[in-house]
Design a protein around this nucleic acid. Structure first.
Lengths: 171, 171
DNA sequence: TCGGTTGGTCTGGTGAACAGACCAGGGCGT
DNA sequence: ACGCCCTGGTCTGTTCACCAGACCAACCGA
């Protein structure tokens, strides 16, 4: 049992959620999956995580129904399931809190509701239509708080360019 | 450095957030703080966490500005700061995801927007006024998905009764 | 056929979390 | 004045998760 997994005896929805996505690295894997990362080696390049732990985390996220593993022409792809996509509001809320507490120049990343061509507000709502869009309707791009360092690798460079969420960056 | 703390090299708001609240137990401490828990021994009673780790976690949350420690007539009280209260949308979103994935009978806990007398929807919005209330405007009570086991201790029994968020249960 | 990529497994070392012992200070009953 | 419990810790030994790095089989392109 991984650290951060066992909150037995807690009749609490938050504890249940954290048993699945509360381990080290788990939510960052989900974040990258929203951004379009699908491959083992790409998660690795992004996160500087040990291969053994990455294997373990991807496996437990698949087992929990957050990710689905598809073998696809010689390599594997890990993609979010509907259950995984349902994590979007939580991921977005945590990102906005991270921005609010650690970024003086505003959000590091912006999310635009494509049908309305408007950026989400801090609550995750589209200011034009008032809805709370799902990730599939969003496009992301760097915000005013984004770092100015050059990307660590070509993959991170591609993820920095404006692109639709949930669309795989390969194949 | 605690497990789950170091995500250096990540220019990502989510990583920054997880460096503060991504460690084991941290978000559960914040959850209980929203419910009105303030004392070291009460966090302990609720969470079955080692005293050494609780000391460490409360300390790092205080250091991060999420909690504030007030010495108050012979005992200490840990209360949420405005920065900590700003975590409410993230905590709520994760709870709702936990409910959606692990509770067949609906939310384990409901949150009512007191001025409107209406329960929050799944996005954290009040269906009457349309606003996304802060925690201070909410009252909580058990929902249809709440467990039927008797509370583990008197403290948990009190937390199960309807009550306003952020109001200390003692003093 | 040779090198590089992919998606892993395995090993040894480090350090975080755990249970449980211990302890100082304060309040309370007698 | 005395004992006793509560509070809010610290300290110790053990377990186990994470880490770096070695290794490997299958596949692909040149």
């Amino acid at each position: 049992m991984a650290l951060g997994t066992d909150y037995s005896g807690q009749d609490c929805s938050l504890a249940k959620a954290l048993e699945v996505v509360g381990e080290r690295w788990s939510l960052l894997l989900v974040r990258d999956a929203f951004l379009g990362v699908t491959r083992f080696s790409d998660f690795r390049r992004r996160l500087d995580i040990s291969k053994a732990v990455l294997t373990q985390r991807l496996g437990s996220l698949v087992e929990a129904g957050v990710l689905e593993r598809r073998t696809h022409g010689g390599h594997d792809a890990y993609v979010l399931t509907p259950t995984g996509e349902a994590l979007w509001p939580a991921v977005h809320a945590l990102m906005r809190w991270g921005d609010a507490t650690t970024s003086a120049r505003g959000p590091r990343r912006l999310f635009r509701h494509v049908p309305c061509d408007a950026d989400l507000d801090v609550t995750g709502r589209c200011p034009v239509c008032g809805a709370t869009p799902t990730a599939a309707q969003l496009e992301t791009r760097p915000g005013p708080g984004a770092g100015t360092d050059p990307p660590a690798n070509p993959l991170s460079a591609r993820l920095r360019e404006p692109h639709r969420l949930l669309t795989p960056l390969r194949d």
